[in-house]
Amino acid sequence: MNAAVTVVFALLGVLAVGSALLVVTTRQVVHAALWLVVALGAVAGCYLLLRAEFVAWVQVLVYVGAVVVLLLFALMLTKAPIGVSEDLDAGLAQRVVAAMVALATGALLVTVLVDGFSGEVIDQGATGGAPAIGASVFRSWVLPFEVLSVLLLAALVGAIVLSRRDVPGAGAADSVAGGR
């Protein structure tokens, strides 16, 4: 990576981490969802700089375009007051535990990533466009891909069963399991 790309990458990383922090610290529910948009967008930018074009746009399409909209939709459908919601606060103990869990998860992820990919250099010539992704998903990773799609199918069927009211024994459940 040349210098400019590195700088932009670092900035995007800071943006992603900063807005992610705001997601969990803000006391306004909808602001949390909107900061999530920024965080996910910044991550998409990082992908883009890593030449993973396809993944970047999938990130935008699925996460920013659909998941966040779904999130906002659900928030507004339930309760999303303008201004600070006091009950969004947590006690000190809870905060400490949450921070520790987050730090531990982060550390684990970083260790795994560094362990697995340190020293690898991204080939600036090859783009992570659709052909490369398609080839690797449908050649080397076809089995996990299929397993995953079966899992999603199961979640889909489950959601339908839960939300149907005319099936005896099901239905009454008010909380629909959102599967994604």
Binding site: V30, L34, V37, E53, F54, W57, V58, V60, L61, V64, G65, A66, V68, V69, L72, F73, M76, A80, I82, T127, G129, A130
Partner: peptide, 26 residues
């Protein structure tokens, strides 16, 4: 020009809705 143009276009178009949702909520 982008290699995955169609994908990019669809992804970006989906973002516009957030503007409407924000407007409605705010």
């Amino acid at each position: 020009s982008a290699d995955v143009g169609i994908f990019l276009v669809l992804a970006v178009m989906g973002i516009g809705i957030i503007g409407t949702v924000m407007a409605g909520w705010a």
